[in-house]
Design a protein around this nucleic acid. Structure first.
Lengths: 164, 164
DNA sequence: TTAACTGCAAACGTTTTGCAGGCGG
DNA sequence: CCGCCTGCAAAACGTTTGCAGTTAA
């Protein structure tokens, strides 16, 4: 029962981060708590730049870019966030903690990021890892192509109409 | 039969690149051919920096960093290379043309990159894409964790031997 | 001949870092 | 009060780009 804290799955992100910090002699500062609050206020994908901008609109306190980058690294390490893709040269993050495992369809044209869930993939990867004596910790699967909206060919009209 | 060149799968990488270039009014220069030669001389994964360094050791001609970056983009576009992962902030490339589809196990400790093949994954992704009306063009699957060698705990010797 | 290509150096955008002062526990 | 944390500015990093001269076709 002494391991309860280590396996507690019902804690809030803030509590989980707190736990991560204290077990490493680190501190829950005002800046870190603001960042966690902001990050978990919505479920959207985001990159460092977007987070910096969102934070700059808050009135409670300014958080510097450096602190944001440092916190993102810690949140990933703590298992609260994961980096899921790279877009326009920036790392894209999303909630990891308390959010079901999934992967992404990335449209190369409009940049849209669509989540999909398929449990077989994880099963296959576990088997593959076992075969290779590899201890899998995470995976990142980016499926690129054209989304439903961008699939439609650039021709505005079918050839048939040109018969006239 | 007029489409032979477009569907020719037995051409060498050099020939295929040549074809890509001419159909776009581009030219097969000395630099580009040296790069293709160097890239397809071995089957190892590499990044731009490594390629630049390899090329700098050649005696036939110096190829600038800019030209390397420009060529890498073209080789990916031509379907000869694909970027498979990102390591230490650098894009990692490997042969795409004439090489069976596969994914990678990436050790976060030693950085080793192990290929594995699993045809089910592709099948699943095709199905997922269909369900979402997504036209899949490619996928990138990075499985991170600890490789066989790095799995073993950091203890250098069993406690037993310390009994003496 | 001429337009695509190259090397150079400088620019670029993201991310990291050294440091002096601030502040949590 | 110790030492972790912050903001700042500057550095670092991989990559891209403008340009003037070079070269393939």
């Amino acid at each position: 029962m002494s391991e309860l804290s280590a396996t507690n799955v019902s804690a809030t992100p803030m509590e989980k981060f707190q736990e991560y910090l204290v077990t490493r002699g680190m501190r829950m500062t005002r800046e870190r708590s603001i960042i966690v609050e902001e990050v978990f206020a919505s479920h959207a994908h985001f990159d460092a730049e977007q987070l910096v901008e969102q934070l700059s609109r808050r009135q409670d306190r300014r958080v510097s870019r450096s602190t944001v980058y440092r916190a993102l690294e810690q949140l990933v390490e703590a298992g609260l966030l994961r980096s899921v893709a790279r877009q326009d040269g920036r790392e894209v993050y999303e909630h990891d903690y308390g959010y079901p495992q999934h992967d992404h369809l990335i449209c190369r044209k409009c940049g849209s990021l669509t989540e999909f869930h398929n449990s077989e993939i994880r099963t296959i990867l576990e088997e593959v890892a076992r075969e290779h004596g590899f201890r899998m910790e995470a995976h990142r699967l980016e499926v690129t192509g054209l989304c439903n909206d961008c699939c439609r060919p650039p021709v505005t009209r079918p050839e048939k109409l040109n018969l006239l």
